[in-house]
Amino acid sequence: MDLLTFFMLAVPLVLFAAVVILHPSPVYSAMSLVVVMSFLALYFFFLDAHMLGWFQIIVYAGSIMVLFLFVIMLLNLQNDPQEHQQPSLRTASRIGGAVLIAELVFLFSRSSSSEKAAAELPEGFGTVVALSEKLFTDFLIPFEITSILLLIAAVGAVVLAKR
């Protein structure tokens, strides 16, 4: 992926990410997050990870964000009124954000990867076969643990909801 493509994707992505945080309406925030997810998927496509990109769209943009919207609509959330925000919370979040930015800047300045040439992709990179081989051989145990974790979470949610 060349620099031009990178920035063509990065600029709208960051802009929409900003909308997610700044827009007062929760529905607009959620929809902007959908756009952000789609741009991330585009990144995956340009990095030859097609399957990952589609899963990004199906799972995150297509399912999880729909659930977000569902909850927003079900609770009929209105625009976030200013007076509900606590001043102490705002200060804390500002400090936390500043620390995070500082951390990221520090990390990225240390690992300047621009000098290294892009690694050659192995044959069949990003295809279903390659991905599933990795998933079901090298990373079998983490994969299975993750699925059990998700299952526990789902069962737990049902139990809590039934209460």
Partner: peptide
């Protein structure tokens, strides 16, 4: 996957 992705976006 492409078609599934499109179908899932259709709900919006």
């Amino acid at each position: 996957l492409y078609i599934l992705g499109m179908v899932s976006l259709g709900v919006y």
